[in-house]
C-alpha cells in the first residue's frame, strides 16, 4: 500500500516538476498573444497649442487640440494573412483623428499595422499602409513585446514613415507601476501632406503644385510596463511646419502645429488599471505557476521518498523471511 502511494506521489512530483519549465518556456510563448479582435481607443490632448488656420494660412494659439486614436483588430484580414504567413497575425486598422478647439477636423490619418501576435514583430503583407501610402514597417509601433527588456528598441514613426531607435532611459515608478521609460527624437524631416486636408478643395496634390512642403519633428516619450509590454503613459512634443512655395507668400515657413501632447487623465487611469490586471495574467504564466509547480513537485518528491523510506524500514525484517524459509534446491 505504501509502495503504491509512493509511486503515485513520484508520478505527480515528476508531473508538476515538468510542468514548471513547460509552462514558462513552451506554453507561455505560444499562448501569450495580442487578441486579433482587440478594440481600443485613446484620447490625447495638447493644451495651449499652435495651429495653422488654413483659411488665412496663419498660425494661431488655441486652448486645446484633441487627438482621438482608435485601434481595431480586423479578424478577417488577420485570418487571411495567417494562411500565407504561417503564424499568428494581428491586423490593426487605426485612425488618428485630430480635432481643433471648435470641434473641427484638423487631420484624419488611417493606418494598417500588421504584426506577429506573440512577438509584436511587423509582418509584411498587402494592405500595410499609413494614410493610404504603402509602407514596410520595421521595429515596433504602439506596443512593446511581452517581457520588455531594459534596452533600446527600433520604433516606427508613422508621420515620417521611418524606423528609428527609441532609447531606454531608465526604470521609473508610474502611479505605483514599475515602468521602463523610452524616448525617441525624430529630427526635422520632410513628411507627406495628409490625404484628407481640413479645408475642402485643398488636396495633397494641389498643395504639391504650390511647392510648399511639410516638415515635422517630435520627441516621443513612452512609459512601458515591462511584463505586458504595454505603454501606461505617453507624451509627444510635436512640431509641424509648412516651408517654402507660393502657398506661404513671402514667408519662408509657418507653424502648422506645435504642442505638448499628453494622454487625457481618465485614459491614464483606465490604462494603468487595465495594464495592472493584464500584468497578473502574464506573471501567472511566467512566474507564479512555474515556481508554484516546481515547489509542489519538490514537495511531492520529498513526500514520495519519505513514504518509500518508511515502507522499506517497516518491511525490513519481512524481506528476509521468505529467503530463510525458501527451500534449498541445489
Amino acid at each position: 500500500m505504501h509502495r503504491r502511494a509512493g509511486l503515485i506521489l513520484l508520478a505527480l512530483a515528476v508531473f508538476f516538476a515538468a510542468l514548471s519549465p513547460l509552462t514558462r518556456w513552451y506554453a507561455f510563448p505560444r499562448l501569450a498573444k495580442i487578441p486579433a479582435d482587440q478594440y481600443q481607443d485613446m484620447v490625447l490632448v495638447a493644451k495651449d497649442a499652435t495651429l495653422l488656420d488654413y483659411g488665412t494660412m496663419t498660425e494661431r494659439k488655441v486652448p486645446q487640440v484633441t487627438i482621438v486614436q482608435t485601434l481595431k483588430g480586423n479578424v478577417e484580414a488577420s485570418e487571411r494573412i495567417e494562411k500565407t504567413a504561417g503564424r499568428d497575425v494581428v491586423v490593426w486598422d487605426g485612425l488618428s483623428y485630430v480635432q481643433g478647439p471648435d470641434g473641427e477636423m484638423v487631420s484624419k490619418i488611417p493606418e494598417r499595422y500588421i504584426f506577429d501576435a506573440h512577438t509584436q514583430e511587423p509582418v509584411h503583407a498587402r494592405g500595410e499602409m499609413v494614410d493610404g501610402d504603402p509602407v514596410r514597417r520595421e521595429g515596433l509601433e504602439f506596443k512593446w513585446p511581452f517581457l520588455t527588456e531594459p534596452r533600446d528598441y527600433e520604433y516606427f514613426d508613422a508621420q515620417a514613415r521611418v524606423t528609428a531607435p527609441i532609447h531606454y532611459k531608465g526604470t521609473q515608478d508610474f502611479r505605483g507601476v514599475e515602468v521602463y521609460y523610452f524616448e525617441q527624437t525624430i529630427p526635422w524631416t520632410e513628411v507627406p501632406f495628409p490625404r484628407i486636408m481640413p479645408v475642402e478643395g485643398i488636396t495633397r496634390e494641389t498643395v504639391a503644385k504650390t511647392g510648399t512642403t511639410r516638415w515635422y519633428t517630435t520627441v516621443r516619450k513612452f512609459w512601458v510596463e515591462p511584463v505586458t509590454g504595454a505603454p501606461v503613459y505617453g507624451e509627444e512634443i510635436h512640431k509641424e511646419e509648412l516651408r517654402g512655395g507660393t502657398l506661404l507668400g513671402d514667408r519662408k515657413k509657418v507653424t502648422a502645429f506645435a504642442g505638448h501632447v499628453k494622454m487625457r487623465e481618465d485614459y491614464i487611469e483606465h490604462t494603468v488599471d487595465l495594464v495592472t490586471s493584464q500584468r497578473v495574467v502574464v506573471l501567472l504564466m511566467t512566474s507564479y505557476l512555474p515556481w508554484g509547480f516546481l515547489g509542489l513537485g519538490l514537495l511531492l518528491l520529498a513526500l514520495a521518498l519519505s513514504i518509500e523510506a518508511r515502507g522499506r524500514r517497516a518491511g525490513g525484517s519481512g524481506v528476509e523471511e521468505p529467503v530463510t524459509s525458501e527451500p534449498v534446491t541445489a
Binding site: A11, V14, F15, F16, A18, L19, L22, T23, Y26, A27, R30, L31, K33, P35, A36, D37, Y39, D41, V68, T70, K72, G73, N74, V75, E76, S78, E79, D93, G94, L95, Y97, M105, K108, P110
Partner: peptide, 26 residues
C-alpha cells in the same frame, strides 16, 4: 502526462473572436 497536457493546451490555443462592430472614432 505533463507533456500531453501542455501540448493539448497550446494546440487548443485561444479563440480569435470577431471584428468589433464599433467604428474608428471621429
Amino acid at each position: 502526462l505533463a507533456f500531453a497536457l501542455v501540448l493539448a493546451l497550446t494546440e487548443l490555443g485561444t479563440p480569435t473572436g470577431e471584428t468589433s462592430p464599433k467604428p474608428l472614432l471621429t
